[in-house]
Design a protein around this nucleic acid. Structure first.
Length: 489
RNA sequence: GGUCCCAUCGUCUAGCCCGGUCUAGGACGUCGCCCUCUCACGGCGAAAACAGGGGUUCGAAUCCCCUUGGGACUACCA
């Protein structure tokens, strides 16, 4: 039997990293087994679904390389299918109409709370006589369809991960759930999530449902409907949840924290790599061998298996994500990094018109070990595009002293007579100066570094001077000297 | 409150199913040392965990029970 899995997001917000991980595991399971990965958009909630979200979900999945084999299938296009399933279940005696108002239902819940019971519908609609039902229908009283859960027995959710192979729910604890929005005969209410999900899983012949553990109790209901429909029950894998601050990631206020947003697109905009994200997400609840953690897409696909999934919830480890991103920044081909950094440099307003990819690659290469996120490059590279507007305060205090000033002027004098502006050609005269002064190279280099870059931490000083060129270097030193004189006359 | 799920270093985890090889392995983070013109990268090293209590067993991180803790669900959302 060929494996068929689906990722079924609701477009009520941007795809977040938790959803992306669910999509990833479905994708991996399909790829590993030569199966089919289906994308299904669960947009039955017209109020909350937006086209913007739909577009962003596609975009984020493509960015991560989670290409789907079938779909996207939109539930909003499948009304006829749900209508047919509804008729089938009704004919089987699995459904009944309920005319209760929101207020009545709230009362039932409140009562249950007081009695410390699970709030379960009391089936008052089921006690209506056929004549009473007909009267309400004739009067146009809105109703919803409820699924009649069997009185006895239990519903077993076959799960590869949670429980000991299955999770058991007593039917008496489930309660007759609602499967449509309120409507009338003339104007029927639309189908609800649980219902569509079960119908679609059956219709699409889904073999494995891999989704978050927050769906565990829904699954019992979906299995009940699947049985009523006479459909096969897929194998379920309820993934442990990704926690953020000890709580489930919330769809709302997705990107409330600008530094640690949860939407995939916001992460991309912050300069995270798809490779790092793919790798990191795969390791969130799954492990390769417990030793290796930096893995290629193919290695992950080949090694992926459901039985190496963890059962317990995982905190979203920002430090590790950032570390991995830094690793990929350092190890991805330079051309890739340059292509990805370019837009960030442009956005920062740097003039790239006269800059070749080779030149950009050069300066990116110099700063790459100090940058984990692509968004860090503009600030890191700023001094290659413009003379420092200010000098690092701590460094200025330490190196812009009378002694530092003298050293800077001496350095400038040596550099002015330098004929060879290569790394070695620059190093030689400065080293000679250090020896004459009986100082460590750092003593000379630090004031120079600060003068040309405004910073106390940069790549090798002579590489920097080489890139800046003679004129630019000397003019920056002159400016620094002026600033120093002005500050301490 | 009810139902369900989960429980190894601060965090992500390996080991658990098939008890002894575990003085519990790796990674991130932290700290120290080395490399070094600075920062970073890299290298080396350190501190750091089987939630608690009962069983079963010659022997338990591994099996069973209880307690405790954490999470999810508890919509005419998905």
């Amino acid at each position: 039997m060929t494996i068929r899995v689906r990722f079924a997001p609701s477009p009520t917000g941007y795809l977040h990293v938790g959803g992306a991980r669910t999509a990833l595991f479905n994708y991996l399971w399909a790829k590993k087994n030569g199966g089919t990965f289906i994308l299904r958009i669960e947009d039955t909630d017209e109020e909350r679904s937006t086209e913007d979200s739909v577009a962003q979900i596609y975009e984020s999945m493509r960015w991560l390389g989670l290409h789907w084999d079938e779909g996207p299938v939109r539930q909003s296009d499948r009304a006829a299918l749900y209508q047919e399933a509804l008729r089938k279940m009704e004919a089987g005696g699995h459904l009944y109409r309920a005319f209760d108002t929101k207020e009545e239902l709230e009362e039932i819940r409140e009562q249950a709370r007081l009695e410390k019971r699970n709030p379960i519908y009391d089936r008052r609609a089921l006690r209506l006589t056929p004549a009473e039902v007909q009267a309400k229908l004739d009067a146009g009283v809105p109703f919803v369809w409820r699924f009649r859960v069997p009185d006895e027995g239990a519903t077993r959710v076959p799960d590869t991960l949670q429980g000991e192979g299955e999770c058991v729910f007593q039917n008496s604890e489930i309660g007759d759930f609602i499967i449509t929005r309120p409507g009338t005969i003339a104007n029927p209410g639309g189908p609800l999530y649980n219902f569509c999900c079960a119908v679609d899983d059956a219709e699409m012949r889904i073999t494995h449902v891999i989704r978050g553990a927050d769906h565990l109790s829904n699954t019992a209901r979906q299995i009940l409907m699947l049985e009523a429909l006479g459909a096969a029950i897929p194998q379920y894998t309820h993934l442990p949840l990704i926690l953020k601050g000890g709580k489930k990631m919330s769809k709302r206020d997705v990107d409330a924290d600008g530094r640690f947003p949860v939407s995939v697109s916001a992460r991309r905009d912050l300069g995270y790599h798809p490779e790092a994200t793919f790798n990191f997400l795969a390791l969130l609840g799954w492990s390769f061998d417990g030793e290796r953690e930096i893995l290629t897409r193919d290695e992950i696909i080949n090694a992926f298996s459901l039985d190496r999934l963890s059962k317990s919830n995982a905190n979203f480890d920002e430090d590790k994500y950032l570390f991995l991103n830094g690793w990929y920044t350092r190890h991805l081909p330079t051309a890739t990094i340059v292509a990805r950094v370019r837009p960030f440099l442009e956005a920062a307003g740097f003039d790239l018109a006269s800059r070749t990819d080779e030149w950009i690659g050069g300066v990116v290469g110099l700063e790459i070990e100090r940058c984990k996120l692509l968004t860090e490059f503009p600030e890191a590279l700023r001094y290659f595009f413009a003379a420092p507007a200010s000098y690092e305060e701590k460094g200025a205090k330490k190196f812009f002293t009378p002694e530092g000033l003298a050293l800077l002027e001496d350095s400038a004098a040596r550099l002015e007579t330098a004929t060879d502006w290569s790394h070695d050609g620059l190093e030689a005269p400065i080293k000679a100066l250090a020896e004459e002064k009986q100082l460590g190279l750092g003593k000379i280099a630090q004031p120079l570094r600060l003068a040309v870059s405004g910073r106390t931490a940069t790549p090798g000083l002579f590489e920097v001077l080489h890139v800046l060129g003679r004129e630019e270097t000397l003019s920056r030193i002159r400016r620094a000297v002026e600033v120093m004189r002005a500050a301490a006359p």
